[in-house]
Amino acid sequence: MKTIKTIIFDLGGVLIDWNPEYVYLEVFNGNREKMQWFFDIVCTHDWNENQDAGYPLAKATEERIALFPEHEELIRMFYGRWEEMLGGAIEGTVEILKNLVDSKQFQVVALTNWSHETFPIALKTFDFLHWFEGIIVSGEEKTRKPFEDIYEMTLSRFNIEANHALFIDDNLRNIKAAKEMGINTIHFESPENLEVELKSFGINF
């Protein structure tokens, strides 16, 4: 069994529940089909991820409005009501994080795809974000997962040995990229599953 010295947490979908549906499902009067069309065609996942890599929110918004002027009001909501898309902490994972930090057995850091413009809101909202030794925020670094450079940056900045690190993320694409870097991984599905997976690495609390 490999000795794990560092645990790297993703944030959104692992520790923090963020979902644009919290705004748009109401806006579309519960019509999931119309809402999904909007996410597939107008404010897409790829478009939002571009802002996670540091692209300015205001510029991205105006460019999208230029493409879809008939949806201007809906497009402005995406970042205008971004805070309402925060659904709260995923408490089971927060408890696991606390136990890992309190054990003082591991270096615990975070690596997140997140706009540098909205991340300060999360820092004010969630106290547990201040428990980490450090956080790599993609928007601040002008790159994002799953690109190799952000993993290299994380390893270098915190003096992490890849084979002694364990990366937790809910996105399989990001997990695959970390594995290719020689980092041990857990694909996050639920706090309960995470606890089981951590035990498989000999991590008990």
Rank of each mutant, 00 (worst) to 15 (best):
S103T: 03
E72C: 08
L100K: 04
N159Q: 08
I90C: 12
I160D: 05
L57A: 10
N193F: 05
S200N: 13
R64F: 10
E141P: 14
I4A: 07
L74S: 09
A178V: 15
E62S: 08
A60L: 11
E21N: 03
G30R: 10
H130D: 05
F9W: 07
F128P: 03
N48V: 15
L15D: 03
W131S: 08
G87T: 10
T3W: 11
N31I: 11
V94A: 09
E95L: 13
S190W: 10
N19P: 08
H45C: 13
M77G: 12
P56N: 06
G12I: 01
A53Y: 13
G87V: 07
E141C: 11
H45M: 01
R144N: 07
D170A: 09
Y55V: 05
S115H: 06
Q107I: 08
P56H: 02
K34Q: 14
K179T: 09
Y79A: 01
W114S: 01
R64E: 06
F205A: 08
E70S: 06
G92M: 14
E148D: 05
F128Q: 08
T112P: 13
S156R: 14
K142D: 06
K199H: 13
H130I: 04
S156H: 12
D46N: 10
L74H: 01
N50G: 04
W37T: 05
F158K: 05
L123I: 12
P20R: 14
F126S: 11
T44M: 10
Y151I: 14
N31Y: 10
I175P: 00
L11I: 07
R76C: 11
F205Y: 15
P191A: 10
G139K: 02
F119H: 14
Y55A: 07
V23Q: 06
E63W: 01
F68V: 10
I175F: 15
V14P: 00
G182K: 07
P191K: 04
Y55W: 13
R64Y: 05
P146Q: 08
M1E: 04
A53P: 04
L129E: 13
L25W: 02
M77F: 03
L194D: 04
D169M: 03
N184G: 03
I121F: 15
M1A: 10
K179W: 02
P56A: 11
L129A: 08
W47P: 00
G12P: 08
V42F: 09
L111M: 15
